[in-house]
């Protein structure tokens, strides 16, 4: 009886303290950020560049009868931001977790500078990982969360304050994690990854939940790190953001590699070379005026997409036929087109 009472009393106390904290924190959770500092790079010696290369080879992970990752191979070079893309359930998170030794591969290897993460001498000093938005104890302050990682990594506790500053969280360091907004949680995750000043950064969906200011901060930070010679591998759903951020792309679908290369080469690799949007009051006449190679598809009232003829050819044909053209826009394929084509038919929930 006494013990049951004890448990009840203890539970009640925990609940009281938690709920009070949460309310208090929520009240000022979203106060202004400390302004972020512009990044200052440095030149990384050659030896460190070799250490920063990520190599994934034949990586495979089976969950019961689902092949989450299927014989995946790619390489990530230092000094560049590499975007890691794929539809939901394509195996991005599983791949990154295998790279960081959190999930055991069924087959294949994932190494950093030729060594598995778990075999690195001081892994947190070499590689920084940002994997989950909510990966801290809700009742612990952000600063304490970082100080614990400092302890485990063997760096001085003062480093926690340095990375809080870098992440723009200095003002929120002494607040409990439970009161952090999603954006603040992402910043704390990045701060944690930077504790060991690593050569390699691996980030899973770091832009989730960030406001425009936060997205710009993240972009500047990652670009700055890559400019300083670091390896940055970042998975994302936000194609427009990746297009601005990344130098290289790795696209996977259904656990397999769909494309790899520089952003330009991936976008250019897809089959359709672009199309032209034409707005005209007389669609039928224009269609007749174009030569037979051109394919016209309706795009809306008085608008068509034309493929197989460039803007100049369309304009010339219209002039010859005496058709008015109100708008003539060349549309190059963008990353979204490339992504959708490369992952077509493989994006279904498995």
């Amino acid at each position: 009886m006494i013990i049951l009472l004890a448990v009840l009393v203890a539970g009640g106390l925990v609940w009281l303290v938690r709920s009070r904290d949460t309310r208090a924190r929520r009240a000022h959770a979203d106060t202004a950020w400390a302004p972020t500092r512009p990044f200052e790079g440095r030149t990384i010696p050659e030896a460190e560049i070799a250490e920063g290369r990520i190599a994934v080879s034949g990586l495979t992970k089976h969950y019961q009868d689902i092949k989450a990752v299927d014989n995946l191979s790619f390489a990530v070079e230092p000094g560049r931001v590499t975007g890691f893309l794929g539809p939901n359930g394509a195996g991005k998170t599983t791949t990154l977790r295998m790279l960081l030794g959190l999930v055991t591969p069924t087959a294949g290897t994932a190494t950093i500078g030729g060594v598995r993460y778990a075999d690195l001498d001081q892994p947190a000093r070499r590689v920084g990982g940002v994997l989950e938005a909510s990966a801290a104890h809700k009742g612990r302050t952000g600063r304490d969360h970082l100080r614990i990682i400092c302890r485990a990594t063997g760096v001085p506790l003062a480093r926690a304050d340095e990375v809080l500053e870098v992440a723009g969280l200095a003002a929120a360091g002494n607040r409990k994690f439970g009161g952090y907004s999603l954006g603040m949680r992402q910043r704390l995750g990045v701060a944690a990854a930077l504790i060991g000043d690593p050569q390699v950064l691996v980030l899973d969906e770091p832009a989730n939940g960030l406001d425009p200011d936060g997205i710009r901060w993240m972009r500047d930070l990652l670009r700055g790190l890559a400019a300083g010679g670091r390896t940055v591998l970042v998975s994302s759903h936000q194609l427009a953001e990746v297009e601005q951020l990344a130098d290289d792309l790795i696209i996977i679908a259904a656990g397999q590699l769909a494309a790899q290369g520089s952003v330009a080469s991936v976008v250019d690799s897809i089959s359709h070379g672009g199309r032209t949007l034409v707005r005209t009051p007389d669609v039928a006449k224009l269609t007749a005026a174009l030569d037979c190679d051109a394919v016209v598809t309706p795009a809306g009232t008085g608008e068509v997409y034309v493929t197989g003829a460039d803007a100049a050819a369309i304009g010339d044909a219209a002039q010859r036929a005496g058709i008015a053209i109100h708008q003539l826009v060349t549309q190059r394929p963008d990353l979204e087109d490339a992504f959708l084509e490369l992952t077509k038919g493989k994006a279904a929930i498995r």
Binding site: G41, R151, G154, V155, P156, A158, E162, V166, D197, G228
Partner: peptide, 21 residues
């Protein structure tokens, strides 16, 4: 202070044995 030039990291690169840490 910048991200890379860290006074804290420069000061003491490693403290204590693995299990103690």
């Amino acid at each position: 202070m910048t991200l890379l030039g860290s006074p804290a990291l420069g000061q003491a690169p490693r403290t204590g044995a693995g299990l103690v840490r």
